[in-house]
Amino acid sequence: MTTARVGADPVIHVEGLVKRYHQSPTAAVDGIDLDVYPGELFAFLGPNGAGKTTTISILTTALAKTSGVVRIAGYDLDRQAREIRENIGIIFQDPSLDEHLTAEENVRFHVALYGVYGYRPSYRLMPASYRKRVEELSSILGLGPDMFRLVRGFSGGMKRKLEVLRTLMHPPKVLFLDEPTLGLDAVSRQSLWTHLRRVQREEGTTIFLTTHYIEEAETADRIALVRHGRILFLGSPESMKATMTARYVILDAPDRAALRSELADLHPEVAEDGSLKIPFHEETPQTILSHIRVPLSVLRIHMPTLEEAYVGLVTDGDVEEAAS
């Protein structure tokens, strides 16, 4: 990260977005407000059934909203859905490839649908610029020799890479990724992200991502945490981690009594193994260490992870809801 231009006009503007499915007593999306800026990697997180896919389906024009205002790339969802479609790329939760076609035929079909190139019945008859772009992207994504094979024989990772390649043929201002690495092994996931970040960096593409893998959101510019169709948290990964109070230093020394005495003003807690646990908020670990003269045998600093912050926020939301 980051090529984001926060302060510029938002490339995604959502205001009071509500979606209520037919015959459902509750709203799947219940008043979401958010702005995403050009070049941002924006992660949209939440537990199952939180409303992530519903939101992304509305933003990509695949599903009608119940109410609210949505503007993508400056176009209004109600009046200019077609212009929005011209400016976005989508990778759905489930692969949307035609397995009866080769990888290149899938790409050729896509560019014809998007009006980038006229349809020709064979790759050789396509314009040189098309062939060059396919060669470039397939080489970058490691699909080169497989472009003329039937998609039916592709692994999950290859299908995802092909979908990325296909999407980049138009190329989009905003790329929506709905759990793009679901079901992929760690190597395929890492490889796919390497390419996506490169696209974000080099093309300035805005990425709107939903994912279950919290570590994928670590490098996002901002995160929205959604639960029961409402945003619980909106901010940077660092500010999300800062919502957690679980920051502490663990210390121990051969002379524990002396150590405890030196730290008495900081009110240390005694851990199970007898070591001392000193929480810190405003101060830094250095401030704590400056109180110590006795030689240490253990020094560990615990900082909250994004996953802990995520679980904490979701759990707190559940507790608040149960109490009210």
């Binding site: 024009t61 077609r82 479609r85 976005i88 692969p95 949307s96």
Partner: peptide, 13 residues
């Protein structure tokens, strides 16, 4: 069911 219809219907056509 294969998701391919989505690819067609989110295209600007």
């Amino acid at each position: 069911e294969t998701g391919f219809t989505q690819e067609i219907f989110v295209s600007p056509t």
